[in-house]
C-alpha cells in the first residue's frame, strides 16, 4: 500500500467548486484531491450535487465557479485532450440503441482514436468475458437493462482510460455480474487507475471504496476511509453513517405515515 502511495500522483483536484442554477446554489465550495489508484466512493442524498460535480469534470457543465483540474490541467483551458484519458458510465444509461454492440463499440472506440479493427476485436473479447458474444450483432434496443449496462461499461473501458466515472454502474446487473464487476474494479485500481464511483447502494460502496466522500447540500460532509469515518461516528454500517451525517433520523416515522396515507380510504 505504501509503495503505491509514493508512486501515485494527483489525478483530480477540485478547488472551491461552486455552481448554482438560476440563483439556487447546488455546489457550495467543494475541495477534493484524488490520487491515482484510488476508488472513491462518492455518495450523498438525492440533489446533493453529485451529478453536477461529475458533469463539471466531464465538461458537460459550464458556468461553474472555482477550479477543476484533471491530470494537473485546469479543464477550463485544457481543450479536449484530457477527455481521452477518461471513461464514463452515465446514470441515465444513454446509448445509441439503434446500433448493435459491434457498431456502438467501434463508434465510441473511434471517438477516442481507436482504430476500427482494434476496437472491434477488443470489444468482442470484452463482450465474451461478460458472456455476451452471441448478441454482438443484435440491436441494443432489444437488450435488457443489465445487458445494456455491460455494453456501457465495456465502452467506457475500451480505450484504457486512467480515470473512470461510474454513476450507478451496477444498475440492472445480476448478482454474478456484480461479483465480476466488483473484482474488475479492484483490479483496475491495483493497476493504477482512479475510479470515481457514485452510488446509492451503501454496502457496495462500503466494500469497494478506498476512500469515501460524502456530499451533503453542496458541501463535503465527510471524507476518509470507511474505518476512519466509523471511528469518528461510532455507527456500524455506512448506511447508518450516511443517515447520521446527513442528519436523517425520521425514517421510521416517515414510513409509518407513508403507509397510513396509502391505506387511507
Amino acid at each position: 500500500m505504501i509503495i503505491i502511495e509514493t508512486k501515485s500522483s494527483t489525478v483530480l483536484a477540485m478547488e472551491h467548486l461552486t455552481m448554482s442554477y438560476s440563483g439556487h446554489p447546488v455546489l457550495k465550495g467543494v475541495d477534493l484531491e484524488v490520487r491515482s489508484g484510488q476508488i472513491i466512493g462518492y455518495i450523498g442524498p438525492n440533489g446533493a450535487g453529485k451529478s453536477t460535480t461529475v458533469r463539471i469534470l466531464l465538461g458537460l457543465q459550464e458556468g461553474y465557479g472555482g477550479t477543476a483540474r484533471l491530470f494537473g490541467e485546469d479543464i477550463r483551458n485544457a481543450g479536449i485532450e484530457y477527455k481521452k484519458r477518461i471513461g464514463y458510465v452515465p446514470e441515465t444509461a444513454d446509448v445509441y440503441d439503434m446500433l448493435t454492440p459491434r457498431e456502438y463499440l467501434i463508434f465510441t472506440g473511434g471517438c477516442y482514436g481507436l482504430e476500427e479493427k482494434k476496437a472491434e476485436q477488443k470489444g468482442k473479447l470484452l463482450m465474451q468475458q461478460f458472456g455476451m458474444d452471441n448478441v454482438f450483432d443484435t440491436r441494443l434496443s432489444s437488450f435488457s437493462k443489465g445487458m445494456r449496462q455491460k455494453v456501457l461499461i465495456i465502452s467506457s473501458l475500451l480505450h484504457n482510460p486512467d480515470l473512470l466515472f461510474f454513476d450507478e454502474p451496477l444498475s440492472g446487473l445480476d448478482a454474478n455480474s456484480v461479483l465480476v464487476f466488483k473484482e474488475i474494479l479492484a483490479n483496475l485500481a491495483a493497476s493504477g487507475k482512479t475510479i470515481f464511483y457514485s452510488s446509492h447502494i451503501m454496502d457496495v460502496v462500503e466494500k469497494i471504496s478506498h476512500r469515501i466522500v460524502l456530499l451533503n447540500d453542496g458541501q463535503i460532509a465527510a471524507d476518509g476511509t470507511f474505518e476512519e469515518l466509523k471511528v469518528q461516528n461510532t455507527e456500524g454500517s455506512l448506511e447508518a453513517l450516511f443517515n447520521q451525517l446527513t442528519g436523517f433520523h425520521q425514517h421510521a416515522q416517515i414510513a409509518k405515515d407513508f403507509v397510513s396515507i396509502v391505506e387511507e380510504a
Binding site: L60, G79, K83, K84, Y88, T92, D94, Y96, C111
Partner: peptide, 13 residues
C-alpha cells in the same frame, strides 16, 4: 440534447 452524455464526454471538439 439527447446524446449530450454520449458525444460531449468524448474528446471531440
Amino acid at each position: 440534447t439527447r446524446d449530450l452524455s454520449i458525444l460531449w464526454t468524448k474528446p471531440i471538439r
